[in-house]
Design a protein around this nucleic acid. Structure first.
Lengths: 257, 257
DNA sequence: CTACCTTAACGTATTATGTACGCTAAGTTT
DNA sequence: AAACTTAGCGTACATAATACGTTAAGGTAG
């Protein structure tokens, strides 16, 4: 199969009519306990025809002719990871006519899609997934792999810019919304949350004050369970109680500019 | 001129090629001292052919074939208000295939544009302008008028939804960014800022604490000038020092979810 | 078996910020 | 001159942020 750009669609529905002007791209974040990572796809074609260098791209697709953008992004996510009900949020539209500056990229796109594409406006989404839950098979099926956010491989088009814009958005929004629990497993230690914050915000936090803040909230619940097999005092596991969070969420609807 | 949807473009450049799939729409906010308002355009056509009811729409346009989205939004804004360097921020894409549910609206659009439009994905921007600076002539030229945010007239397509999404975004962002000064004149009283916050956040604030907070910052500078002709103690005028703001902006880069 | 290493977990003191609310000041209106 | 209205200052209290000391509970190396 050398037709890649349309791959996801065609695998499930050969008859789909695509809108060649509008696409969605997903910046899928995952956290492995140490690093923040993005799920990227190795573009195909370069093995068959040696003319294109190895590059990666964001999971994405053109939208179907009668498909809502959000639905298209959900579809891309589902077909890649097999997961449903994933945190997914639109964050920016990229519509610069010069978004495909690299001539190779353009040739590759037309080569693999079989369509002469003048300009694609893409709506970018960011997704947060529990990294261990994503089907690892898909990593092979779709040539997908996780990459550290600060060590990105060569990317096609403006996808690097898209990723960085997504990271920037995540960085801003994680401060005021309980997004971290989308990236963590169902049960976690305080240290894990803190590490996640540190890696997203790119700053060290004081563990003692961080604990205090979290445990003073009533939506972080201790489980009667501890770590095992760690070479230090085992930490207790906690879980996030979303219902309590929503009930007690103090509206900091205030000016703080 | 019964061709409205393309009006702005055609008035300045008859030869422009438009991309019939992608548009921009601008939610333009203004503050008159009392109410938060949105600049809307009365759709034309209904006087000539009595078949369409009076409805309003957001200022917007299809993008030109090689035009960046941001540039298109700037163009719409410039051509409507005559203003440059306006605060303008992309906030959401509306791409639901069912965004033109009203049959009348669809007929009107095809009637006035002369193009069979299958589906338009629109990128919505919100703009903040100093209401008194906008050229009032344009209100006539373009059938534009200000409307209170809580008393919107009938709107075409999903434009009401777009406005409310823009308001929601403004409401969130005004809390952490000095956006209010985009809506206020160069010199203003503390009361004016407070009223603006109250109207955007839709909550009363304590004047004494609000003052304290603002005056403790060093980027609100007192001018040697006072109100005149008011039936009470005249208030002092202040201005916003953006440079000082940026210097002393304490990075509240912290978790507060 | 003991000393040591690592991270967990609790506590305390200090400072900064948010919140509630009383009071005076300076204009116009009646 | 008294009443009315908004401006503007101050004080007391509650809550949250910050800095940092200390003990606890495991494993590991000798």
């Amino acid at each position: 199969m050398n037709c890649f750009y349309y791959t996801f669609v065609n695998m499930t529905n050969q008859k789909t009519i695509l809108n060649p002007h509008i696409s969605v791209d997903c910046v899928i974040f995952g956290f492995d306990g140490k690093h923040l990572k993005v799920l990227l796809i190795r573009r195909t074609g370069q093995d068959i025809k040696k003319q294109f260098p190895i590059k990666y791209k964001l999971p994405g697709d053109l939208i179907q002719s009668m498909e809502d953008l959000d639905k298209a992004a959900e579809r891309v996510l589902r077909e890649l990871t097999g997961l449903e009900n994933i945190f997914l949020r639109q964050f920016k539209v990229f519509g610069d006519p010069g978004r495909i500056p690299d001539n190779d990229d353009r040739k590759w796109l037309e080569n693999t899609s079989g369509v002469k594409i003048s300009r694609v406006v893409t709506t970018a989404y960011y997704a947060l997934i529990k990294i261990n839950k994503s089907k690892m098979e898909s990593e092979n099926d779709h040539h997908a792999s996780w990459h550290k956010i600060d060590r990105l491989p060569p990317l096609i088009f403006d996808h690097k810019e898209v990723i960085l814009a997504g990271l920037d958005r995540l960085r801003n929004e994680v401060r005021f919304e309980p997004l971290c629990f989308e990236l963590l497993p169902g049960k976690f230690t305080i240290r894990q949350i803190q590490s996640l914050y540190e890696v997203i915000l790119d700053q060290k936090l004081d563990n003692r004050n961080f604990r205090k803040k979290l445990l003073n909230s009533n939506y972080i619940e201790a489980l009667n369970e501890k770590q095992t097999g760690v070479a230090h005092k085992p930490a207790a596991f906690y879980r996030f109680n979303r219902k309590k969070y929503q009930e007690t969420r103090k509206d900091l609807l205030y000016y703080n500019f």
